[in-house]
Design a protein around this nucleic acid. Structure first.
Lengths: 113, 113
DNA sequence: CTTGACACCTAGGCTGCCTATGTATACAAT
DNA sequence: ATTGTATACATAGGCAGCCTAGGTGTCAAG
């Protein structure tokens, strides 16, 4: 099952914030993790994620730091690690609650609740 | 809590199809019913619904029929009643399953599952 | 006779997801 | 040597749906 873009929309930001709540991550890593953790159901595209990360950094919900990859792993490559800010944590709480209420409302209307 | 447009997006079509599965309805009525059934959480706008109905009719998922309102209720007014088609019923099944899987995937990523 | 509820409609703007493409490095395969 | 694949970042342009704001017209109530 391939999810329509219209469903995807709006789910990227809360998921990014949720990922970063646990530990700093870089974009490419997030793509892989999301694809893996959902068994390929959610298939993030780089062209979606990178601009989203820039928006989040622009509004101060996350912050970025360039880090060289460890020698044994991917020598010579630069990774842009993102961390969630305090403001981002508050936004995560808001978005998580919003999602919970929204999905409940939709379930109700689809007689799934 | 006001849901962001990005979440709303994609939920309109399955909900319309689900409503029409039970009985034919007219647009204005759908707005009221959705607002009521979700306790005001989902607040549909006419400017959203009407174009959506036209799209659904255009792709043959629903069909329309003009009906005069009953004399005792709203005399003189015309209502455009929509019914779901057989094609629409199949699409409803698809969309419902899609939503179920999608919301599960998001719950997983937000540690709500 | 004005207000509000009913009932429909559309144009234009905004915004975010997608496709496609590009840069650059490292390593394996041919 | 060269090609391909994985890593890791980035952007431009297209597309599509939701929203705002405005419009039409009927009728009942104040």
């Amino acid at each position: 099952m391939d999810f329509s873009n219209d469903l995807i929309r709006g789910s990227v930001v809360p998921i990014v914030l949720s990922l970063l709540k646990d530990k700093p991550m870089y974009g490419y890593e997030m793509v892989k993790v999301v694809n893996a953790r959902t068994g390929g159901k959610l298939e993030w595209k780089e062209g979606t994620l990178y601009p989203a990360l820039h928006r989040l950094a622009g509004t101060g919900l996350i912050s970025a730091k360039w880090v060289a990859a460890p020698k044994g792993e991917a020598p010579g490559r630069k990774r842009k690690y993102y961390s969630i800010t305090r403001k981002g944590l508050r936004e995560l709480a808001r978005r998580t609650e919003e999602w919970a209420q929204f999905s409940l409302a939709v379930d109700t209307m689809l007689s799934l609740g």
